[in-house]
């Protein structure tokens, strides 16, 4: 009885704190380096992008008004939960033919990176906020503030570490995001959704879609309700398309391409600052 047919898992998406399938019901086969199908993932399209942006927008006001300290606690909680499910993530990376040694390293670095950004949440405004000298009777100060909904195209390689290195600084700063996961290796992204679900992150703060990035990037980057784009896709045409679409509603747009996500340069408070707006207040003071 050894010729049993394996039951392959169909990985679902993570939107608004739930795990829906793609609106169209389409899936695609996820293959390892030897071209063997290891699982199925949802092939999301335009309408899934639309729903994810709506979910993100409705989560924004609550998440951005949480105290920075509380956001730090929640990011730390994600790290804890990820640590607890280390074995599962190592297995999933191995399934995609990543060597065990490298897989362990990737998961551990991911946990550390979350802890790193958890620490920064309540320090950003002290470090980057300023008190400005002005000539009039005003107390004048500038503070970084969350931008809004950020679209993220997740890196193809380093499917877990690259994902976390892009999401963590964005949500640490009080933003919410819609993530297009790695096309080749979407499994860790969806499992990471399960971790988020179990770690006090309000539904809608992180939304993870799987599928062909090309089918979704146009709709995500042109969406007027998206306020920023963090792109890791290095294809020239895609970069151009994102830049052109972003100009429609003047989105904060950053391209982080050709990266080695293992490098410690990705632990960097300026990545939080990329999606912050500086707000200046003029407060009258007595004579």
């Amino acid at each position: 009885m050894s010729d049993r047919i394996d039951v392959l898992k169909t990985y679902k998406t993570y939107v608004a704190g739930k795990f829906p399938r793609s609106e169209s019901g389409h899936t695609y086969a996820v293959k390892n380096k030897k071209d063997k199908t290891v699982a199925n993932a949802c092939r999301c399209t335009r309408k899934d992008v639309r729903d994810a942006v709506v979910a993100a927008r409705s989560a924004f006001s609550e998440w951005s008004s949480r105290s920075a300290y509380n956001r730090g606690q929640i990011l730390y909680r994600i790290a804890e939960m990820l640590e607890g499910r280390k074995d599962q993530f190592v297995e999933e990376l191995e399934l995609l033919d990543i060597k065990k040694k490298d897989a362990v390293k990737e998961v551990e670095l991911s946990v550390d990176r979350l802890v790193y950004y958890a620490g920064w949440t309540d320090k950003i405004s002290q470090v980057f906020g300023t008190v400005n000298p002005v000539a009039s009777q005003h107390f004048n100060f500038s503070m970084p503030d969350a931008t809004g909904v950020v679209g993220i195209t997740s890196p193809q390689e380093s499917p877990l570490l690259g994902l976390i290195s892009t999401i963590a600084p964005v949500i640490a700063g009080g933003n919410v995001c819609v993530v297009l996961s790695s096309e080749k290796y979407p499994l860790p992204a969806v499992s990471f959704g399960e971790v988020l679900h179990a770690s006090d992150v309000p539904g809608g703060v992180v939304n993870i879609l799987t599928g062909y990035q090309k089918e979704m990037i146009d709709h995500l980057s042109s969406h007027m309700d998206v306020n920023g784009i963090l792109n890791t896709n290095s294809e020239k045409n895609i970069r151009k398309q994102i830049d052109e679409n972003s100009s429609l509603s003047v989105k904060r747009t950053y391209h982080l391409t050709e990266n080695n996500w293992i490098e410690t340069e990705h632990e960097n408070p300026y990545y939080i600052l990329n999606f912050q707006e500086i707000k200046t207040t003029w407060h009258p003071i007595g004579v």
Binding site: R50, V53, R57, H219, S222, H223, M224, D225, L248, S249
Partner: peptide
């Protein structure tokens, strides 16, 4: 326009 809109406009 073919572009999804936002309430803020």
């Amino acid at each position: 326009t073919g572009v999804y809109q936002s309430n803020i406009y």
